[in-house]
Design a protein around this nucleic acid. Structure first.
Length: 137
DNA sequence: GCCAACGTTGGC
DNA sequence: GCCAACGTTGGC
């Protein structure tokens, strides 16, 4: 099963917002990038991903799960982009910061490190396991 | 708040 | 279809 990483600025949409939505979850929209779109389209219901706070915090703070697969984003007037629904699963026992990720040689190839601007990224099984461990899970 | 990196746009 | 200019993102 594939894993993912969702990036969000806490001032716009934070982990706390996501948790407040509970089991019903919420849509993940606003993607206007074709690479991110490809990733969204590849997601399957039940797949999990990290929730990352960019700018403020700069850390992986929790785990989310896809509850609805790719569908059109009607707020996108060009009609090119879509979104998925995700729900909060559980927080990390402690956040894993970008500094820690950069300090770990096994994580140096993460897209988060090399292409920080991509808002939805795939995460390998190795990276997934390691960050879960670093986060105390 | 600055600046580098990247994506998108638009003129040719 | 190429490429320069511009806007946006995100780390520092």
């Amino acid at each position: 099963m594939a894993h993912w990483l969702y990036k969000s600025e806490p001032s716009v949409w934070s982990w706390d917002h996501q948790v407040a939505e509970g089991a019903k979850g919420t849509f993940w929209n606003g993607v206007r990038n074709h690479v991110a779109k490809q990733n969204l389209m590849a997601m399957k219901k039940g797949e999990r991903g990290f929730f990352y706070h960019s700018n403020e915090g700069k850390a992986v703070v929790g785990i989310v799960e896809v509850i609805k697969e790719y569908y059109p984003d009607h707020t996108d007037e060009t009609g090119k982009f879509g979104m998925v629904d995700i729900k909060a699963v559980k927080p990390l026992k402690r956040p894993v910061t970008l500094d820690e990720i950069k300090a770990e040689p096994k994580l140096k190839d993460m897209i988060l490190v090399n292409n920080s601007r991509l808002s939805v990224q795939p995460v390998t099984d190795t990276e997934w396991g390691l960050i879960c461990k670093m986060g105390g899970l």
